[in-house]
Design a protein around this nucleic acid. Sequence first.
DNA 1: ATCACGGTTGAGAATGGGTATCATTACAAT
DNA 2: ATTGTAATGATACCCATTCTCAACCGTGAT
Lengths: 145, 145
Amino acid sequence: MSRERQVLARAGLKATAARERIFQLLESAMPERHHLSADDIYARLRQAGERMGISSIYRVLTDLEEAGLVHRHHFDRHAMGRSLFELADGAEHDHMVCVETGRILEFQDPLIEARQRAIAERHGFEIVGRKLVIRVRRSGADRAP
Amino acid sequence: MSRERQVLARAGLKATAARERIFQLLESAMPERHHLSADDIYARLRQAGERMGISSIYRVLTDLEEAGLVHRHHFDRHAMGRSLFELADGAEHDHMVCVETGRILEFQDPLIEARQRAIAERHGFEIVGRKLVIRVRRSGADRAP
DNA sequence: ATCACGGTTGAGAATGGGTATCATTACAAT
DNA sequence: ATTGTAATGATACCCATTCTCAACCGTGAT
């Protein structure tokens, strides 16, 4: 039984070919771009000579997300931006997006996380999920006068 | 000259009727729901016997956003969620959304903000904007076993 | 094996915020 | 008034995502 099958099974998902394959792709994208859209996945599959319906890709991604194996992000300023997905590899992290280059940096800050928990608790809540995106630009960059 | 006109002028926007009116609406929503969608605004205008094209509403909201007078949020989990708008009244704040009731709470935490600035600086960036949304639920709520 | 059935897949249609187009209208400056 | 410039609004359009539904597994029971 492959590693993928194990992870899927542990998350309570039947291990189908589509799920395994998409999981693999997300995994292989981790060192590199780290964030794939549904279209990216579609394209990569084609490039590899495989084919999968785009609706299945969306369905599988949603399944994986609901099983907690994948995180979905929206880094665009506006609503109609596409969703980007990445594997949920244990450690939560937040994102910094450069508005000039579009580059996405990840970071972790235990202090911020602790603070968030404290604030939620103070209001009688527990945290289900959080999303912090900082939009940044190279400091000292020339701006409109 | 009305207060609205002054604010618009100060932000570099010609004060048109549409802009003044939408600004007013956002202002009047502050004590109450605090976050309005383009549709909400459309509906409120109709209810008041006025009429404005929905495209104008979107355009004005985008103008106001770009002038820094208004913030746009997406609290939904998925991409196609609608945009919600609120007046940018000086102090930045973050949001906590209850996944059970949909209620939106606002909070401020200077420590989190300072931390964010520090992290951005450490990477050679300056902050252009940030967005922190914590999804929460009443703690102690029963969950699936 | 075969059957039955519950979940999975995928092509194509539908959805729904949001945007683009463009003729019309309002305003401002000459 | 006249001309130029920007704002408005009806409508068409876009496009990522979801829905629908028929075909298709896969597995366990017979």
